[in-house]
Nucleic acid binder design. Structure first.
Length: 429
RNA sequence: GGAGGCUUCGCCUAGUCCGGUCUAUGGCGCCGCACUGCUAAUGCGGUUUGGGUUUAUCGCCCAUCCCGGGUUCAAAUCCCGGAGCCUCCGCCA
């Protein structure tokens, strides 16, 4: 028995693109700061696999006719026929073992090569390009940070979060809890208005889902794993939304298939020791409304810009000053071909804080998950997947508390949120 | 958690007991063609997915009967493991 064909292998960049235009893949590697020589390893593995598969196919064909000969052999020739068939069976078995090894080697080589970038600036984390700044930063003589504001309002309790669950856990209470619920509702209302299918999704998923969305590669240490059940806690509803249509053929004739998923998100935050240790900027658990689109490859770029526009629309409703950056190639996840972040102003630290992020994963996830669409010619065609944060609870709360804080310690509620919160100001109880 | 039944190429289904042209049956749906004022009806043909080969078309080859192993010259069919669905029992918000 053979491994799944490369079309379903994980980590797959389009092998046809690779064969036709390896230089483009190499250029992508260079822009990411990854080794372009890995592309040649992948090419070699692909070629090797093709040769081995061709041979095994031929041997299997021969085996068919030989075992058929056994069936039809006269009684006195039967023993000899079985003998020949037995010999050939051994050769086929060997060829299939080679096939298995070649498939595995290709699979490994593919894991080394992340998605081919779509454009955007080369370089690493600091090489982003600022596309625009929107809104006015608040003028505050002595801005309080969200921890202090949250304590005064009895809205955020990090101390007891730590007592009960450890560092990077928190309680939202009173207006803090209400604020999150209001934000979730506002975000969902916007998404539904825009035609998204609202969805509440599983937070625990099987390995295939995690692997298929590309989170078990370089992100693996970030992910909580329940070994007892071999289930993973999702870090974003993207995982469950993408995997929902695993091994399906979608009908995208009527346009993109869009979900707005709500889920709790779990992140180990390994490797970020000492980073954002104060407050709820970086936590192990938060809630998020995530936009997720399935669309055709040719429409993926337009869809990406649409997701970004919806993110900005939401930030505008919250009256937050923000900027949009075009994330550099070296700072992309392995599945993303391009990524834009929206960063809100953080008055207490006088810096920008990532609030939302939208990625175009082109066919990378869909290929791993076996998701295709019925093409115009009726044959299955490749699909692109895209994701974008609409509302991540904790950081959005941080941004609102800090940017809308008043000199008297209260917090002004942005207009769009008032009907969901039933008040214009957040005050200490 | 326990017991039993089930899973076949879009949907339904034959085949599994007893291994071999299963190169998987039939129906529905869908596509094409023919016939016909139009439609309908009827007839004929086609209709899983992936890989390999081919300049390309046509085609040819290989794999695919929930998934993964095993037995065998040969597996939809036999054996082991897993997943899912259904029924009943137990437990539970």
């Amino acid at each position: 028995m053979r491994m799944p064909p490369p079309g379903n292998l994980e980590g797959v960049i389009d092998l046809r693109l690779l064969r036709d235009d390896p230089e483009r893949v190499r250029a992508s590697q260079r822009a990411r700061g990854e080794d372009p020589a890995l592309v040649d390893g992948l090419l070699a593995a692909d070629e090797r696999r093709r040769a081995v598969v061709t041979r095994a196919d031929a041997l299997r064909g021969e085996q068919k006719s030989v075992s058929n000969a056994v069936r039809q052999a006269a009684p006195d020739e039967r023993a000899a026929a079985v003998g020949r068939a037995r010999e050939l069976a051994a050769i086929v078995k060997q060829a299939e073992a080679q096939e298995l090894a070649a498939d595995a080697a290709l699979r490994l080589a593919q894991l080394d090569v992340p998605n081919v970038i779509e454009g955007g600036p080369p370089g690493d984390e600091d090489d982003y390009v600022v596309l625009r700044e929107v809104g006015e930063k608040p003028r505050l003589d002595q801005p309080l940070d969200h921890v202090e504001i949250g304590e005064r309002l009895a809205a955020i309790d990090t101390e007891r979060g730590a007592k009960v669950s450890g560092a990077r856990f928190y309680y939202l209470t009173g207006v803090g809890a209400l604020l999150e619920l209001a934000l979730v509702n506002l975000a969902m209302a916007q998404a539904v208005e825009a035609g998204f299918i609202p969805a509440i999704v599983p937070s625990l998923v099987r390995p295939e889902a995690m692997e298929g969305t590309g989170f078990l590669g370089s992100h693996a240490p970030e992910v909580y794993h329940l070994t007892e059940d071999d289930l993973y806690l999702v870090g974003t509803s993207e995982v469950a939304l993408a995997a929902r249509h695993m091994n399906e053929i979608l009908d995208l004739g009527a346009g993109p298939l869009r979900y707005a998923g709500f889920s709790t998100c779990f992140r180990r935050e390994a490797g970020s020791y000492g980073k954002d240790t104060r407050g709820i900027i970086r936590v192990h658990q938060f809630d998020k409304v995530e936009m997720f689109s399935f669309t055709t490859l040719d429409r993926a770029h337009d869809e990406h810009l649409r997701l970004l526009a919806w993110e900005e629309e939401f930030l505008a409703k919250l009256e937050l000053p923000y900027r949009v950056i075009d994330v550099a190639a070296g700072d992309l996840g392995s599945s993303a071909a391009r990524k834009y972040d929206c960063e809100a102003w953080l008055p207490s630290q006088a810096r920008w804080l990532e609030l939302t992020s939208t990625s175009n994963c082109t066919d990378y996830q869909a290929r791993r998950l076996g998701i295709r669409a019925r093409g115009a010619d009726g044959r299955p065609a490749l699909v692109a997947t895209l994701n974008g944060t609409l509302m991540a609870s904790t950081r959005t709360i941080v941004a609102i508390l800090e940017n809308h804080q008043q000199p008297d310690g209260s917090v002004r509620v942005p207009k769009a949120l008032r009907s969901y919160l039933d008040r214009e100001v957040l005050e200490a109880p």
